[in-house]
Write a protein that binds this DNA or RNA. Structure first.
Lengths: 232, 232
DNA sequence: TGCATCCGATACTCGAGAGTTCCGGATATC
DNA sequence: GATATCCGGAACTCTCGAGTATCGGATGCA
């Protein structure tokens, strides 16, 4: 990282090489500790112990705790293909998005977000990196889905796409971070059917109205038939 | 410390009395420092300096930093009458709610919330107290407003009142804490007109309606609850 | 008037965590 | 095989902040 060879003496490159295959393991350990204890609660020793590495090994690769965390958050971004579903209907697309990165994974990401948010005032660039890696891709996907629905005439062009694209992320984040409640599939479906779709002008899904036909063969009422009731 | 008056001698009550009129000043200073630096960034010395008090004075009143903050957050609750507006229409009510505790005040409260959220894993009761004092009253007010609109038939009884009541809080919190953008009147109006009202089945405010047009917030008017303070 | 307590201010102790250094051992280059 | 660097591990220094103790001065109560 901080090697700046002065052009004449590039780098001796002697001795044992650094094993960069360990980097991801260390960063993953850092993310786990961050999610469990928060930024202020986590210590370098915790990360080193979790990664079964020496503290010196960590400091050979990153100059400080903050640098390491920025790398950790950034590396979380890849492995997130964010391929858009295309079921033909807006509701089908939104539902399909729910478990693309599995609920549990999303929960952990929000925990990480909570851990980072604490030091937002001390290191804004870290918060920005976290947002870009965790939340922004989902919002962008929702925006694309909504735009596609507008394009095919499923919803009105008057829709406030920009705000609607953030509804799901906002309310999930609020639920986890503030309310300390779990974000499960039922909750996400209730957001889609109770807020996003009605706000897009698709009406409220009432039990007696078959409306736009059953969305694919998924049998919407399966699983928790009780929780799917739109009732108050 | 270990004073155990043998039931016959409850409290001598000698000497100078503690000046409890200083408590609010100290707690206010604590909230300011918390909002500015976050929980981990704030120190007892900062609070004492801000309040022009000695550190010993603080420890005579609260046994620890956490105790003091719990009191500070709790004391923030009062002075918040939360009187519901009643303009006759749901939109009028929601708009009237916007500047009840002035935008600037709301921003500071969200800063405080952000500061507290960091130590949510270490002291969940503090986070709960903060939620109860800051966000819950607003959500409850929105819920009441929506229920009233349902009662008078303005919106459908099928509405997902529970989720809709949290839309504004969720998206404002997300905007401040994650997006690091200001929550101004225009944003709140766009949430009301672009998400909440359409989701309640009141339709999207289309440009042919005489009410909308330019996206500037100065338009709605309707007499009583008009913005007397254009700034902020 | 005298005492006990409060006040603000300062100096102190103590623990925790960031970052550094050293160790014995492993490994790749020369 | 010599050497320079890596590794995990542990001990170390250094800083910072929570909490305590003490001081001179102010104040209420007997």
């Amino acid at each position: 990282m901080t090697e700046l060879p002065p052009s004449t003496a590039p780098a001796p490159k002697l001795g044992r090489k650094r094993d960069h295959t360990r980097d991801p393991e260390i960063l993953m350990a850092a993310l786990e500790v961050l999610a469990e204890t928060g930024y202020d609660g986590m210590t370098i020793d915790m990360v080193a112990a979790r990664a079964r590495a020496g503290k010196a090994t960590l400091y050979r690769r990153w100059s400080s705790k903050g640098e390491m965390l920025i790398d950790a958050v950034a590396c979380m971004k890849q492995g997130d293909p964010t391929e858009l579903p295309d079921t033909g209907s807006l509701r089908g697309d939104l539902i399909a998005m729910i478990k693309q990165p599995s609920i549990e994974d999303g929960r952990k990401k929000l925990q990480i977000m909570a851990g980072i948010m604490s030091m937002v005032s001390q290191a804004p660039e870290l918060a920005a990196a976290a947002h870009a890696a965790i939340l922004a891709p989902r919002t962008a996907a929702n925006r694309a889905l909504l735009a596609r629905a507008v394009a095919r005439g499923e919803i009105s062009a008057q829709c406030d796409v920009e705000n609607l694209a953030m509804v799901s992320q906002s309310m999930s984040t609020y639920r986890v971070l503030i309310l300390r409640q779990a974000v499960d599939r039922d909750f996400l479906v209730s957001i889609i059917d109770g807020v996003i779709l009605p706000a897009a002008g698709m009406g409220i899904r009432s039990p007696d109205a078959p409306d736009t036909g059953p969305p694919e063969g998924g049998t919407p009422a399966t699983g928790t038939s009780d929780a799917s009731t739109p009732g108050v």
